[in-house]
Protein backbone atom coordinates (compact mmCIF):
# COMPACT_ATOMS: atom_id res chain seq x y z
CA UNK A 1 0.00 0.00 0.00
CA UNK A 2 0.82 3.62 -0.20
CA UNK A 3 3.20 4.80 2.47
CA UNK A 4 2.46 8.34 3.39
CA UNK A 5 5.74 9.69 4.67
CA UNK A 6 7.49 12.86 3.59
CA UNK A 7 10.41 12.66 1.18
CA UNK A 8 13.81 12.40 2.88
CA UNK A 9 15.06 15.86 1.94
CA UNK A 10 12.59 17.61 4.22
CA UNK A 11 12.73 21.34 4.02
CA UNK A 12 12.52 22.57 7.57
CA UNK A 13 9.84 25.21 7.25
CA UNK A 14 6.96 23.78 5.30
CA UNK A 15 4.48 24.77 7.91
CA UNK A 16 3.20 21.27 8.51
CA UNK A 17 4.32 18.22 10.34
CA UNK A 18 5.26 14.91 8.81
CA UNK A 19 1.93 13.35 9.69
CA UNK A 20 -0.29 16.20 8.53
CA UNK A 21 -0.97 14.80 5.01
CA UNK A 22 -1.78 11.48 6.62
CA UNK A 23 -4.56 12.91 8.78
CA UNK A 24 -6.19 14.61 5.85
CA UNK A 25 -5.96 11.54 3.64
CA UNK A 26 -6.66 8.82 6.17
CA UNK A 27 -10.48 8.95 6.21
CA UNK A 28 -10.82 8.75 2.43
CA UNK A 29 -8.13 6.11 2.02
CA UNK A 30 -9.44 4.04 4.88
CA UNK A 31 -12.99 4.13 3.49
CA UNK A 32 -11.91 3.22 -0.02
CA UNK A 33 -9.86 0.43 1.47
CA UNK A 34 -12.87 -1.05 3.26
CA UNK A 35 -15.27 -0.72 0.35
CA UNK A 36 -12.85 -1.18 -2.56
CA UNK A 37 -9.76 -3.17 -1.66
CA UNK A 38 -11.23 -5.52 0.89
CA UNK A 39 -14.02 -6.75 -1.42
CA UNK A 40 -11.49 -7.11 -4.23
CA UNK A 41 -9.35 -9.34 -2.04
CA UNK A 42 -12.48 -11.23 -1.07
CA UNK A 43 -13.30 -11.69 -4.78
CA UNK A 44 -9.78 -12.95 -5.36
CA UNK A 45 -10.19 -15.52 -2.60
CA UNK A 46 -13.63 -16.50 -3.88
CA UNK A 47 -12.19 -17.02 -7.33
CA UNK A 48 -10.14 -19.92 -5.94
CA UNK A 49 -13.20 -21.59 -4.40
CA UNK A 50 -16.17 -23.49 -5.64
CA UNK A 51 -18.83 -21.02 -4.59
CA UNK A 52 -22.29 -21.75 -5.86
CA UNK A 53 -24.85 -20.25 -3.47
CA UNK A 54 -27.64 -22.06 -5.21
CA UNK A 55 -26.07 -25.25 -3.82
CA UNK A 56 -24.97 -24.36 -0.29
CA UNK A 57 -24.76 -28.03 0.71
CA UNK A 58 -21.64 -28.44 -1.39
CA UNK A 59 -19.88 -25.94 0.88
CA UNK A 60 -17.35 -23.54 -0.53
CA UNK A 61 -14.16 -25.62 -0.88
CA UNK A 62 -10.91 -24.27 -2.28
CA UNK A 63 -10.31 -25.68 -5.73
CA UNK A 64 -7.08 -23.94 -6.67
CA UNK A 65 -7.01 -22.68 -10.22
CA UNK A 66 -10.00 -24.74 -11.33
CA UNK A 67 -12.22 -21.69 -11.89
CA UNK A 68 -9.53 -19.95 -13.90
CA UNK A 69 -8.84 -22.94 -16.12
CA UNK A 70 -12.53 -23.42 -16.72
CA UNK A 71 -13.00 -19.71 -17.51
CA UNK A 72 -9.99 -19.55 -19.80
CA UNK A 73 -11.10 -22.64 -21.68
CA UNK A 74 -14.72 -21.48 -21.72
CA UNK A 75 -15.68 -20.40 -25.21
CA UNK A 76 -18.55 -18.20 -24.06
CA UNK A 77 -16.31 -16.03 -21.86
CA UNK A 78 -13.93 -15.42 -24.75
CA UNK A 79 -16.89 -14.85 -27.03
CA UNK A 80 -18.24 -12.18 -24.70
CA UNK A 81 -14.83 -10.47 -24.54
CA UNK A 82 -14.58 -10.68 -28.31
CA UNK A 83 -18.08 -9.26 -28.68
CA UNK A 84 -17.14 -6.41 -26.34
CA UNK A 85 -14.15 -5.71 -28.58
CA UNK A 86 -16.37 -5.85 -31.63
CA UNK A 87 -18.76 -3.40 -30.01
CA UNK A 88 -15.86 -1.08 -29.22
CA UNK A 89 -14.51 -1.05 -32.77
CA UNK A 90 -18.03 -0.52 -34.12
CA UNK A 91 -19.15 2.37 -31.93
CA UNK A 92 -15.91 4.25 -31.45
CA UNK A 93 -15.03 5.24 -35.04
CA UNK A 94 -18.60 6.44 -35.56
CA UNK A 95 -18.64 8.37 -32.28
CA UNK A 96 -15.27 9.94 -33.04
CA UNK A 97 -16.23 10.92 -36.59
CA UNK A 98 -19.63 12.32 -35.58
CA UNK A 99 -18.13 13.96 -32.50
CA UNK A 100 -15.48 15.66 -34.60
CA UNK A 101 -18.05 16.96 -37.07
CA UNK A 102 -20.18 18.30 -34.23
CA UNK A 103 -17.16 19.90 -32.57
CA UNK A 104 -16.19 21.61 -35.84
CA UNK A 105 -19.75 22.86 -36.27
CA UNK A 106 -19.68 24.27 -32.76
CA UNK A 107 -16.24 25.77 -33.20
CA UNK A 108 -17.06 27.55 -36.45
CA UNK A 109 -17.72 31.26 -35.92
CA UNK A 110 -21.26 32.59 -36.25
CA UNK A 111 -24.72 31.23 -35.44
CA UNK A 112 -24.37 32.29 -31.82
CA UNK A 113 -27.76 31.29 -30.46
CA UNK A 114 -28.16 28.02 -32.36
CA UNK A 115 -24.62 27.11 -31.38
CA UNK A 116 -25.10 27.67 -27.66
CA UNK A 117 -28.38 25.77 -27.82
CA UNK A 118 -26.68 22.83 -29.55
CA UNK A 119 -23.89 22.91 -26.99
CA UNK A 120 -26.31 22.76 -24.11
CA UNK A 121 -28.33 19.93 -25.62
CA UNK A 122 -25.17 17.83 -25.89
CA UNK A 123 -25.32 17.38 -22.13
CA UNK A 124 -28.75 15.72 -22.27
CA UNK A 125 -27.67 12.29 -23.57
CA UNK A 126 -24.72 12.24 -21.19
CA UNK A 127 -26.90 12.84 -18.16
CA UNK A 128 -29.66 10.42 -19.13
CA UNK A 129 -29.78 7.52 -16.70
CA UNK A 130 -28.22 4.56 -18.51
CA UNK A 131 -31.09 2.29 -17.55
CA UNK A 132 -33.56 4.81 -18.95
CA UNK A 133 -31.55 4.89 -22.20
CA UNK A 134 -32.30 1.18 -22.32
CA UNK A 135 -36.01 1.80 -21.72
CA UNK A 136 -36.07 4.41 -24.49
CA UNK A 137 -34.30 1.90 -26.73
CA UNK A 138 -37.01 -0.66 -26.04
CA UNK A 139 -39.61 1.90 -27.10
CA UNK A 140 -37.82 3.18 -30.19
CA UNK A 141 -36.80 -0.24 -31.49
CA UNK A 142 -40.09 -2.00 -30.84
CA UNK A 143 -40.95 -4.31 -33.70
CA UNK A 144 -44.61 -3.33 -33.93
CA UNK A 145 -44.79 0.37 -33.21
CA UNK A 146 -41.20 1.56 -32.80
CA UNK A 147 -40.24 4.82 -34.43
CA UNK A 148 -37.02 3.26 -35.77
CA UNK A 149 -39.01 1.22 -38.25
CA UNK A 150 -40.92 4.33 -39.24
CA UNK A 151 -37.59 5.99 -40.10
CA UNK A 152 -36.55 2.93 -42.10
CA UNK A 153 -39.85 3.15 -43.91
CA UNK A 154 -39.04 6.74 -44.92
CA UNK A 155 -36.05 5.36 -46.78
CA UNK A 156 -38.11 2.59 -48.27
CA UNK A 157 -36.60 -0.12 -46.10
CA UNK A 158 -38.94 -2.71 -44.65
CA UNK A 159 -39.64 -3.10 -40.93
CA UNK A 160 -37.02 -4.92 -38.85
CA UNK A 161 -37.48 -7.05 -35.79
CA UNK A 162 -34.71 -5.09 -34.10
CA UNK A 163 -34.54 -6.60 -30.63
CA UNK A 164 -35.70 -10.01 -31.78
CA UNK A 165 -32.89 -10.63 -34.24
CA UNK A 166 -29.19 -11.03 -33.62
CA UNK A 167 -27.88 -8.30 -35.90
CA UNK A 168 -30.84 -6.05 -35.13
CA UNK A 169 -30.26 -6.19 -31.39
CA UNK A 170 -26.54 -5.53 -31.79
CA UNK A 171 -27.29 -2.60 -34.09
CA UNK A 172 -29.83 -1.25 -31.61
CA UNK A 173 -27.39 -1.17 -28.68
CA UNK A 174 -24.76 0.32 -31.00
CA UNK A 175 -27.15 3.11 -31.99
CA UNK A 176 -28.14 3.89 -28.39
CA UNK A 177 -24.48 3.95 -27.35
CA UNK A 178 -23.67 6.29 -30.23
CA UNK A 179 -26.52 8.54 -29.16
CA UNK A 180 -25.32 8.66 -25.59
CA UNK A 181 -21.57 8.99 -26.10
CA UNK A 182 -21.11 11.00 -29.29
CA UNK A 183 -21.71 14.22 -27.30
CA UNK A 184 -18.88 13.20 -25.00
CA UNK A 185 -16.51 12.94 -27.98
CA UNK A 186 -17.83 16.23 -29.34
CA UNK A 187 -17.22 18.06 -26.05
CA UNK A 188 -13.70 16.67 -25.76
CA UNK A 189 -12.83 17.67 -29.33
CA UNK A 190 -14.42 21.06 -28.81
CA UNK A 191 -12.18 21.60 -25.80
CA UNK A 192 -9.20 20.64 -27.98
CA UNK A 193 -10.24 23.01 -30.78
CA UNK A 194 -10.59 25.91 -28.38
CA UNK A 195 -6.96 25.40 -27.34
CA UNK A 196 -5.73 26.34 -30.83
CA UNK A 197 -4.40 29.88 -30.47
CA UNK A 198 -6.59 32.33 -32.36
CA UNK A 199 -3.72 33.98 -34.27
CA UNK A 200 -2.49 30.66 -35.60
CA UNK A 201 -5.94 29.74 -36.77
CA UNK A 202 -6.42 33.13 -38.44
CA UNK A 203 -3.05 32.92 -40.16
CA UNK A 204 -3.82 29.45 -41.41
CA UNK A 205 -7.17 30.60 -42.76
CA UNK A 206 -5.36 33.19 -44.87
CA UNK A 207 -2.92 30.58 -46.13
CA UNK A 208 -5.39 27.98 -47.19
CA UNK A 209 -9.08 27.74 -47.86
CA UNK A 210 -9.02 23.98 -47.51
CA UNK A 211 -10.79 22.91 -44.34
CA UNK A 212 -9.08 19.56 -44.56
CA UNK A 213 -5.57 21.07 -44.59
CA UNK A 214 -6.59 23.27 -41.68
CA UNK A 215 -7.81 20.28 -39.70
CA UNK A 216 -4.81 18.15 -40.49
CA UNK A 217 -2.00 20.64 -39.98
CA UNK A 218 -3.33 23.17 -37.51
CA UNK A 219 -6.06 21.61 -35.38
CA UNK A 220 -5.12 17.96 -35.27
CA UNK A 221 -2.17 18.37 -32.88
CA UNK A 222 -4.52 19.98 -30.37
CA UNK A 223 -7.03 17.17 -30.78
CA UNK A 224 -4.59 14.35 -30.13
CA UNK A 225 -4.60 14.34 -26.30
CA UNK A 226 -8.40 14.29 -26.30
CA UNK A 227 -8.46 11.50 -28.85
CA UNK A 228 -6.06 9.42 -26.77
CA UNK A 229 -8.16 9.99 -23.67
CA UNK A 230 -11.25 8.90 -25.60
CA UNK A 231 -9.69 5.72 -26.94
CA UNK A 232 -8.65 4.61 -23.48
CA UNK A 233 -11.63 5.83 -21.47
CA UNK A 234 -14.17 4.41 -23.87
CA UNK A 235 -12.45 1.03 -23.76
CA UNK A 236 -12.87 0.99 -19.98
CA UNK A 237 -16.47 2.20 -20.38
CA UNK A 238 -17.32 -0.55 -22.84
CA UNK A 239 -15.92 -3.16 -20.46
CA UNK A 240 -18.18 -1.64 -17.78
CA UNK A 241 -21.22 -1.28 -20.00
CA UNK A 242 -24.12 -3.03 -18.32
CA UNK A 243 -27.21 -0.95 -17.55
CA UNK A 244 -28.34 0.02 -21.03
CA UNK A 245 -27.71 -3.40 -22.55
CA UNK A 246 -29.25 -5.26 -19.64
CA UNK A 247 -32.45 -3.25 -19.88
CA UNK A 248 -32.67 -3.43 -23.65
CA UNK A 249 -31.73 -7.02 -24.42
CA UNK A 250 -30.48 -8.89 -21.31
CA UNK A 251 -27.58 -9.95 -23.55
CA UNK A 252 -29.85 -11.65 -26.06
CA UNK A 253 -31.27 -12.79 -28.32
CA UNK A 254 -29.01 -15.81 -27.98
CA UNK A 255 -25.72 -14.17 -27.11
CA UNK A 256 -25.92 -11.40 -29.70
CA UNK A 257 -25.41 -8.59 -27.16
CA UNK A 258 -23.74 -10.51 -24.37
CA UNK A 259 -21.05 -7.95 -23.51
CA UNK A 260 -18.61 -9.01 -20.83
CA UNK A 261 -20.17 -7.23 -17.82
CA UNK A 262 -23.63 -8.50 -18.75
CA UNK A 263 -22.26 -12.01 -19.12
CA UNK A 264 -20.45 -12.01 -15.77
CA UNK A 265 -23.53 -10.62 -14.06
CA UNK A 266 -25.56 -13.53 -15.40
CA UNK A 267 -23.03 -16.15 -14.34
CA UNK A 268 -22.94 -14.59 -10.86
CA UNK A 269 -26.56 -13.73 -10.24
CA UNK A 270 -28.64 -15.99 -12.49
CA UNK A 271 -26.53 -19.12 -12.35
CA UNK A 272 -25.23 -18.17 -8.86
CA UNK A 273 -21.84 -19.59 -9.71
CA UNK A 274 -19.96 -16.91 -7.79
CA UNK A 275 -16.63 -18.73 -7.89
CA UNK A 276 -16.52 -18.75 -11.67
CA UNK A 277 -17.96 -15.25 -11.90
CA UNK A 278 -15.31 -13.99 -9.47
CA UNK A 279 -12.55 -15.50 -11.57
CA UNK A 280 -14.03 -13.74 -14.60
CA UNK A 281 -14.32 -10.49 -12.66
CA UNK A 282 -10.68 -10.72 -11.56
CA UNK A 283 -9.60 -11.21 -15.16
CA UNK A 284 -11.71 -8.21 -16.12
CA UNK A 285 -10.09 -6.23 -13.30
CA UNK A 286 -6.63 -7.11 -14.59
CA UNK A 287 -7.56 -5.80 -18.04
CA UNK A 288 -8.95 -2.64 -16.44
CA UNK A 289 -5.81 -2.06 -14.39
CA UNK A 290 -3.71 -2.34 -17.54
CA UNK A 291 -5.98 0.21 -19.22
CA UNK A 292 -5.76 2.59 -16.24
CA UNK A 293 -1.97 2.28 -16.21
CA UNK A 294 -1.94 3.17 -19.88
CA UNK A 295 -4.26 6.12 -19.28
CA UNK A 296 -2.01 7.52 -16.60
CA UNK A 297 1.22 6.82 -18.45
CA UNK A 298 -0.07 8.64 -21.51
CA UNK A 299 -2.14 11.46 -20.08
CA UNK A 300 -0.89 12.44 -16.65
CA UNK A 301 2.71 13.18 -17.44
CA UNK A 302 2.99 15.82 -14.75
CA UNK A 303 1.92 13.46 -11.99
CA UNK A 304 4.55 10.81 -12.67
Amino acid sequence: MTSITPPPQVRPNRGYGRWTPFWFLAPAVFTLFIIGIYPTIFALVTSFRRYNIARPRDGFPFVGLENYTSVLTDGTFWASLFLTGQFYVTVLPIEIALGLVIALLLHKPGMGFLKSLARVTLVVPLATTYAVVGLIGRLIFNRDFGVANWFLDLFGIGALDWLGSQTGAFAAIVIMDIWQWTPFCALIFLAGLSMVPGEIEEAARLETSSKWAMLKHVQLPYLMPGLTALLILRSADVLKLFDMVFVMTRGGPGSATDLVSVYIQRVGFRVFDLGTASAQAILLLIITILISRLYIRVLYKEVN
Binding site: T2, P39, K240, F242, A281, Y295, N304
Partner: peptide, 29 residues
Protein backbone atom coordinates in the same frame (compact mmCIF):
# COMPACT_ATOMS: atom_id res chain seq x y z
CA UNK B 1 4.30 16.54 -1.23
CA UNK B 2 4.66 13.01 0.05
CA UNK B 3 5.89 9.69 -1.16
CA UNK B 4 3.29 7.47 -2.75
CA UNK B 5 1.27 10.38 -4.08
CA UNK B 6 1.23 9.06 -7.64
CA UNK B 7 0.30 5.56 -6.45
CA UNK B 8 -2.59 7.03 -4.58
CA UNK B 9 -3.59 8.96 -7.63
CA UNK B 10 -3.42 5.81 -9.78
CA UNK B 11 -5.63 4.04 -7.30
CA UNK B 12 -8.29 6.75 -7.49
CA UNK B 13 -8.27 6.63 -11.30
CA UNK B 14 -8.53 2.86 -11.51
CA UNK B 15 -11.52 3.02 -9.22
CA UNK B 16 -13.17 5.21 -11.82
CA UNK B 17 -12.44 2.65 -14.53
CA UNK B 18 -13.34 -0.59 -12.78
CA UNK B 19 -16.51 -2.34 -13.84
CA UNK B 20 -19.07 -2.40 -11.03
CA UNK B 21 -19.50 -6.13 -11.61
CA UNK B 22 -16.02 -6.70 -10.15
CA UNK B 23 -17.14 -5.35 -6.78
CA UNK B 24 -20.79 -6.35 -7.03
CA UNK B 25 -19.96 -10.06 -6.63
CA UNK B 26 -17.89 -9.88 -3.41
CA UNK B 27 -19.99 -7.08 -1.93
CA UNK B 28 -23.08 -9.19 -2.50
CA UNK B 29 -21.57 -12.09 -0.55
Amino acid sequence: EFRGKSDLWFWFISNRMTSPIVLALPVYI
